[in-house]
Computed example of a mutant assay.
Amino acid sequence: MASDSRNSSVLLWGITAALVAAVVIFFAYQWLFATSNEKLPEYQDINAQSVSPAKKSAVPASVEQPPVATEEETIKLVEEDLLKAPVPENASLAKEEIARMDDLQAQLKDQEKMLKQQHADADELIKLKEEQLKLLEAQLAQN
């Protein structure tokens, strides 16, 4: 009986060690191949910080505040090196580049449309606030 309990303990430790070794090998494999993929260029999503129309409509118009951007805080949409980069000579690479540029252009147009809408909403909010102030001043004058 004592031999069985000792062997089961050794077996349990062996299984645990094998599992730990498998996990360590898995993470080492992931780490090695993740560092080799860092050389690929990463494309940023321009609309990552923008608010989707569904989320925007959920916020009441009286609560929404338009963001105020100064020259220092403006976001650079297109890098200068992107404009000066040569077009690839390979036809398939050129088509991919054109598709990527078309996608970027569509994103910029969507962002422009959204910003114009936000600007119009901000102008309307300003008009409503001015009317509200006039009404409050009239109430104060009557009292």
Rank of each mutant, 00 (worst) to 15 (best):
K84C: 00
S5G: 00
I75N: 15
D110V: 01
I75K: 14
A54F: 08
E64I: 11
L135H: 13
V10Y: 11
P41M: 04
L82T: 12
L115Y: 00
A2P: 07
N90L: 03
A2D: 15
P53E: 00
D110A: 09
Q117T: 06
A91Y: 00
A69S: 11
Q132W: 02
V51W: 00
N143S: 05
K109S: 12
A22N: 03
Q44S: 13
E130V: 02
E38S: 12
S50A: 11
V87G: 07
A99Q: 09
A28Q: 09
L140N: 09
A17G: 01
Q118K: 10
E38R: 10
E131S: 13
I25R: 14
L19R: 03
F26T: 07
A22I: 08
L19S: 06
F26R: 11
K109Y: 08
T16L: 11
L133F: 06
M101F: 08
L12K: 14
V78E: 03
T16D: 03
E80C: 01
K113S: 11
A22S: 12
P66A: 08
D103E: 14
F27Q: 10
L108Q: 07
F26S: 11
A22D: 04
I15W: 05
F27T: 10
A2F: 09
S36T: 15
L125A: 15
M114Q: 13
T16F: 09
A28W: 07
E71W: 06
T35H: 03
A28H: 07
R100S: 09
D81R: 13
L128D: 14
A99T: 08
E38H: 10
E80W: 05
A141L: 06
V23S: 13
T70Q: 01
A54V: 07
S3F: 14
L32N: 12
D110Y: 03
I75D: 15
K134V: 02
D81W: 06
A58E: 15
N143H: 12
Q65H: 12
Q111C: 02
I25A: 15
P60R: 08
A138E: 11
N37I: 14
I46P: 01
E73K: 14
L136M: 04
P41T: 01
E96V: 06
Q30M: 02
A18H: 02
A120S: 13
V78Y: 04
R6I: 13
